[in-house]
Amino acid sequence: KKSYVLIKVKNPKTKETHTIVVPEENLEEVLKALASQPNVKVVDIERFP
């Protein structure tokens, strides 16, 4: 059974918020990819039960 993680990201320029759902096993690479985006800020990470 896969567990999923909900990542909320915000664009500081446009103030838009997006929610991305990723499998927990991919969380680290997704966070690394997001960290390299200049106008993306991770605001929240939630685990799915």
Score class of each variant (00 low, 15 high):
Lys10Ser: 13
Leu31Gly: 00
Glu29Arg: 12
Ser36Lys: 13
Leu31Ile: 04
Glu29Ala: 10
His18Asp: 04
Pro49Asp: 14
Val5Ser: 02
Ser3Lys: 08
Glu29Ser: 08
Tyr4Ala: 03
Glu28Gly: 07
Leu34Asp: 00
Glu24Asp: 05
Pro23Ile: 08
Glu16Pro: 01
Val22Thr: 04
Val42Asp: 01
Gln37Arg: 11
Lys10Cys: 14
Leu34His: 00
Phe48Arg: 05
Ala33Asn: 08
Ala35Lys: 09
Val43Lys: 03
Gln37Cys: 14
Ala35Ile: 07
Lys41Pro: 02
Thr14Gly: 03
Lys32Arg: 13
Phe48Ser: 05
Asn26Cys: 14
Val5Leu: 07
Ile7Gly: 00
Glu46Arg: 15
Pro38Cys: 12
Val21Asn: 03
Asn39Trp: 06
Arg47Ile: 12
Lys10Arg: 13
Pro23Asp: 11
Val30Leu: 07
Val5Gly: 01
Lys1Asp: 11
Ile7Val: 07
Ala35Asn: 08
Leu6Ile: 15
Ile20Ser: 01
Ile45Asn: 01
Glu46Ala: 13
Glu16Thr: 09
Phe48Asp: 04
Lys10Asn: 10
Tyr4Gln: 04
Ala35His: 11
Leu27His: 02
Ile45Trp: 07
Val5Thr: 02
Gln37Leu: 13
Pro38Met: 04
Glu28Gln: 09
Glu24Lys: 04
Lys15Gln: 13
Thr14Ser: 07
Glu25Met: 05
Val5Tyr: 15
Leu6Glu: 14
Val9Phe: 13
Lys13Arg: 12
His18Ile: 13
Lys15Ser: 11
Val40Asn: 04
Glu28Tyr: 09
Thr17His: 08
Lys13Leu: 14
Val9Lys: 00
Lys10Pro: 00
Val9Ser: 01
Thr19Asp: 04
Glu29Trp: 09
Thr17Tyr: 12
Lys41Ile: 15
Gln37Asp: 13
Pro38Ser: 11
Val40Ser: 06
Val9Gly: 00
Pro23Val: 07
Thr14Pro: 00
Leu6Asp: 04
Glu29Tyr: 08
Glu16Gly: 07
Thr19Val: 13
Leu27Gly: 01
Lys41Tyr: 09
Glu46Pro: 01
Tyr4Gly: 03
Arg47Glu: 05
Pro12Glu: 15
Glu24Arg: 06
Asn39Gly: 10
Val9His: 02
Ile45Arg: 01
Lys41Thr: 13
Asn39His: 11
Lys13Phe: 14
Gln37Glu: 07
Ile7Trp: 00
Glu46Thr: 14
Thr14Ala: 03
Glu16Gln: 11
Ser36Trp: 06
Pro23Ser: 11
Thr19Phe: 14
Glu25Val: 05
Glu28Trp: 12
Val30Lys: 02
Thr17Lys: 05
Val30Phe: 13
Leu34Ala: 01
Glu24Thr: 08
Lys15Ile: 03
Glu25Asp: 08
Ile7Gln: 00
Gln37Gly: 03
Glu24Trp: 10
Val9Arg: 00
Lys1Ala: 10
Leu34Gly: 00
Thr14Gln: 03
Leu6Ser: 13
Phe48Gly: 06
Ile45Gly: 01
Val42Asn: 01
Val40Glu: 03
Lys13Trp: 12
Lys32His: 08
Lys2Asp: 13
Val40Thr: 10
Lys13Ser: 09
Glu46Gln: 13
Ala33Cys: 14
Thr14His: 03
Lys2Val: 10
Arg47Lys: 08
Glu28Phe: 11
Glu24His: 05
Leu34Met: 04
Asn39Ser: 06
Ile20Cys: 08
Lys41Arg: 10
Val42Cys: 05
Glu29Leu: 10
Ile7Pro: 00
Asn26Ala: 09
Lys15Thr: 05
Glu16Arg: 12
Asp44Pro: 02
Val30Ile: 08
Val21Gln: 05
Lys8Ala: 04
Ser36Glu: 11
Ile20Gly: 00
Val43Asp: 03
Ala35Arg: 11
Arg47His: 09
Glu29Asp: 08
Pro23Glu: 09
Val5Trp: 15
Val43Phe: 03
Val22Gly: 00
Pro12Cys: 15
Leu31Glu: 01
Phe48Ala: 07
His18Asn: 06
Ile45Asp: 01
Thr17Cys: 13
Gln37Ser: 11
Asn26Lys: 12
Ile20Phe: 11
Ala33Thr: 06
Asn11Gln: 02
Glu16Lys: 14
Glu16Trp: 08
Tyr4Leu: 14
